[in-house]
């Protein structure tokens, strides 16, 4: 007992990690704590400690702008994560065919991810802008009736965001899944071939289940990028037209900085935290159960 205690609290290790611990506690725990705390107050421009209970939450859920944001994030999240996973896997399979110029292709696919979303978003905005992008270019070529301006239409702007999100995220999904694919023993493929299992079936029934870890990693990364999607929206649509492409993170920042309503902004931020906590709790339970089962089996 004594020995294990000492090993767990090795002094240099403790000293080495103190800055990290301070940052983690200071930024995450205390910061989140104050966010939650102020979400129960009537804070306007500056935080106050005038507690009003759940009033901010009631106002938040009555705000159509917030409701649109929540709807948007679900739509954006489901669409972009699904498409990213599918495209990422297909790209990974394509890259795994021992193609020539693999490095070149990998760079091309990863390029959008390497660039800042502000830059990517801006490029997309230019391309889709009716007055200087694709539409104008094709009209100048003579196709004068051509009309393609998804960003200025409230019904289609969100699709443009999804497409940009896929373009940005499928490369990194591909990289992770490609690593997973490469980790699958070549003899598994041979065995499946001798067994007469079609390639698509081998992917679906044998290889994909073996890549659980890679899929989970890619999925978590995608989820994180969806929850905090902000810069892409700001760069491409600014949340518009109107409030058509508003997202929770955009909403929070706007409430705090533009509408000077810290209390409600914090309430919205707390609402964003909730699903993350649910996922964390769920994964914690899964890991705990697996450890317990693993311990029982050993």
């Amino acid at each position: 007992m004594q020995k294990s205690w000492r090993r767990r609290f090795h002094l240099p290790a403790v000293i080495g990690t103190i800055p990290m611990i301070l940052v983690a506690v200071g930024v995450f725990v205390i910061g989140i704590g104050f966010s939650v705390l102020w979400s129960f107050t009537s804070s306007k421009l500056f935080p106050t400690y005038d507690f009003v209970g759940l009033a901010q939450y009631r106002r938040l859920w009555a705000d159509s702008r917030w409701l649109v944001s929540v709807n948007n994030i679900w739509f954006f999240g489901l669409m972009s994560i699904t498409c990213n996973m599918v495209f990422g896997y297909l790209l990974a399979v394509f890259m795994d065919q021992r193609i020539r110029q693999e490095d070149l292709f990998r760079s091309i696919f990863l390029y959008p991810f390497a660039m800042s979303l502000i830059v990517t978003g801006l490029v997309w905005q230019w391309v889709l802008d009716p007055n200087l992008g694709l539409q104008e270019a094709l009209r100048n070529l003579g196709w004068s009736s051509f009309s393609f301006a998804p960003l200025v239409d409230a019904n289609t702007a969100i699709y443009a965001l999804v497409v940009a999100g896929i373009w940005q995220g499928s490369g990194v999904t591909m990289a992770i899944l490609l690593a997973g694919l490469r980790g699958v023993d070549e003899e598994i493929w041979k065995a499946a071939k001798v067994d007469g299992i079609p390639t698509w079936r081998t992917h679906l029934s044998i290889v994909a289940p073996m890549m659980k870890g890679a899929f989970a990693t890619a999925f978590v990364l995608q989820c994180v990028s969806v929850v905090r999607v902000y810069d892409l929206v700001i760069a491409m649509t600014g949340g518009g037209p109107g409030i058509a492409t508003s997202m929770p993170a955009v909403y929070v920042i706007q409430l705090i900085t533009v509408r000077q309503n810290v209390g409600q902004g914090m309430a919205a931020a707390t609402m964003m935290l909730l699903p993350v906590l649910v996922v964390l709790a769920f994964s914690g339970i899964v890991i705990w159960r697996r450890n317990r089962l693993g311990g029982a089996e050993a």
Binding site: D185, E187, I188, K190, A191, S205, I206, M210
Partner: peptide, 9 residues
């Protein structure tokens, strides 16, 4: 096969 190549799942 040498690595058995069983389908692990």
């Amino acid at each position: 096969f040498q690595s058995y190549a069983l389908y692990p799942q």
